[in-house]
Structures are given as structure tokens and as C-alpha cells.
């Protein structure tokens, strides 16, 4: 492989990992704090894609400025919906068997798919063009938007790190994820933090959809396909760990891209082989153990 091809492929892997991280960080966060496996996370990602498409293309017309507003709109709309889902739908189920939460989030996939169909129709929705120009690397090209995606993912990672280690809210959220009972005895308003956490996770899904949609083709049901690899990511990285989501995304991203080149038959299979091996030797994932010990 010539060096230029190696560079662009390395970058392809990094880009793919970035998208995975944007999706899986929210999923992992909600699970880590609330112990809710939100099966509808992919549907929230889809909604983010549609909101960004609507604001940036249908309302404002494509520009970097409108993209930025569209991202913000996606985060707010989907986070707002997250608060509604948590307060109205999930809260009554907290003291019931966990199957009911799973069932509810599963049902939400279909409900949100249908809502998208009602609002935007069943046809494909896509950006007229991938925004920005491309940077040449020898004979190859890297679209600037791919690079932007990587920076957004890194930015989100840094933001989450700052939020959980430096802000009072973040510290309280971590406290309830270690022990809900102790935290509420200490006077932390767990209700409000649950809503905040779910909103944050949902907002991340919204942003992921918004960042992804200019490159992809949006259609109802797109969330289902996005979510499967994200589950692999958080199982590998450790459910509930943002660092785990980060490392898991890199592992999945790089293994996929380099298997596609070297041994295409195992392109997808390898990801699940890695997942199975990690589950065998470290059932909580690479970075999941820490949390369990402290709980």
C-alpha cells in the first residue's frame, strides 16, 4: 500500500470511529448513570439527522452558519424530547421490572420512525452536497467535512471529560451513578439529575445524527442500523464509560477499515469476535470494571 493510501485509510478509520463515538457516548452515558439501556437511542440519532436536514437545507439553505444553527437545533430538540421521554414515560417504570423499560424504549423506535414518516415522509432525505471542499493527499482526497467530524468528536469527548470532572453537576451525576441511595441521602436531587442525564445523552444522539446526515442518506429506520455497531462499541469499551466508548469506537473503526482492505470477508465479523473475546475475559468491557468495583 503506498503511503498516501495508508494515510487516507488511516483517516477513514478515524472518521468512522468519530461518528461511532458521537453515537455511542450518549448511549453509554445514559446506561452508566441511569442503568437504562435506551434501545431508542438510534431513533433519537435519526431525529437529529432530520432536524439538521430541515434547519440547514429546508429552512436556511446550506452554509456553515446554518449548519451550526442546525446542530444546535438538533441538540435542543432531541434533548427536549429526551426530557419528555424520561419524565413522562420512563419515570413511572423506575420501580418496575427492567424488562418494561426495555420494552418501552423498543416501542419508541417504532413510534419515532412513524413520527418521522408523518412529518418528513418515507422518501430519502439527503444534503444536496457534502459541505466544503476536499484536501488532496497525493492522488487521494479527504473531504474537509470528514476532518471537521473528527474534531467535533474530539470536542465532545473533551467537553464530557470537563463536565464530569470539573462541574458540580457532573460530579453529582457521577455520584448518583455510583450510589443512587447515598446520593439522595446526601441531598442530591436525583430526579432532576436523571432528567438532565437523559437529556444530555439524547442531545448527543441528536448531534451525532446532525453531524452524520450531510454525508449519508436519511430515511426512517436509519437509527436501527446505526445502533447495532454502537452496542458493539460500548460492550467492548465497557458500558457506562465515556473513555470506554472512545476506545471502543477506535477499536471498531480501525478494525473495520483495515479488515475491509486486508481481509474483507471478516470486515464485520472481526468486530464481534473482538467483542466476544472481551466479554469472555473481561465481561464488563475494557473500562467497565472500575465502576462496578466502586458501586
Amino acid at each position: 500500500m503506498d503511503i498516501n493510501l495508508f494515510i487516507v485509510q488511516f483517516f477513514n478509520a478515524l472518521f468512522f470511529a468519530s461518528i461511532l463515538f458521537l453515537i455511542s457516548s450518549g448511549l453509554s452515558l445514559i446506561y452508566g448513570i441511569m442503568k437504562i439501556l435506551n434501545l431508542a437511542h438510534g431513533a433519537l440519532y435519526m431525529l437529529g439527522a432530520y432536524v439538521t436536514f430541515t434547519v440547514a437545507i429546508l429552512w436556511l439553505g446550506m452554509s456553515w452558519y446554518s449548519m451550526l444553527l442546525a446542530y444546535l437545533a438538533s441538540i435542543l430538540v432531541v434533548a427536549g424530547l429526551g426530557i419528555f421521554i424520561e419524565r413522562v414515560l420512563l419515570k413511572p417504570l423506575y420501580n418496575k421490572p427492567q424488562d418494561l423499560q426495555l420494552l418501552l424504549t423498543f416501542a419508541l423506535i417504532f413510534i419515532l420512525d412513524d413520527i418521522v414518516k408523518m412529518i418528513w415522509g418515507a422518501q430519502y432525505r439527503a444534503f444536496p452536497k457534502i459541505p466544503g471542499w476536499s484536501i488532496p493527499v497525493g492522488d487521494y482526497q479527504i473531504p474537509i467535512y470528514f476532518i471537521l467530524t473528527v474534531f467535533i468528536a474530539i470536542g465532545v469527548g473533551l467537553f464530557l471529560h470537563w463536565f464530569f470532572t470539573r462541574t458540580t453537576y457532573g460530579k453529582m451525576v457521577r455520584a448518583i451513578s455510583y450510589s443512587l441511595e447515598t446520593s439522595s441521602i446526601l441531598g442530591i436531587n436525583t430526579d432532576r439529575l436523571f432528567a438532565l442525564s437523559f437529556a444530555l445523552g439524547a442531545g448527543l444522539a441528536g448531534l451525532a445524527g446532525g453531524v452524520a446526515v450531510p454525508l449519508y442518506t436519511a430515511s426512517p429506520g436509519m437509527g436501527g442500523d446505526a445502533i447495532v455497531l454502537s452496542f458493539a462499541v460500548i460492550v467492548i469499551g465497557g458500558m457506562g464509560s465515556i473513555l470506554g466508548a472512545f476506545v471502543g469506537s477506535l477499536i471498531v473503526g480501525f478494525s473495520r477499515v483495515f479488515m475491509a482492505i486486508l481481509f474483507p470477508v471478516f470486515e464485520i465479523a472481526l468486530i464481534y469476535v473482538i467483542m466476544a473475546v472481551i466479554l469472555m475475559f473481561r465481561p464488563t468491557g475494557l473500562f467497565g470494571m472500575e465502576m462496578r468495583e466502586r458501586r
Binding site: N12, F15, Y140, A260, I261
Partner: peptide
């Protein structure tokens, strides 16, 4: 969702 890898492979 991401065809970059294949596109560069074909190009190469």
C-alpha cells in the same frame, strides 16, 4: 454509512 475505505481502495 461510510464508503471512504472502499472508495480509496478502488482509487488505488
Amino acid at each position: 454509512t461510510d464508503y471512504g475505505t472502499y472508495i480509496d481502495q478502488i482509487k488505488g
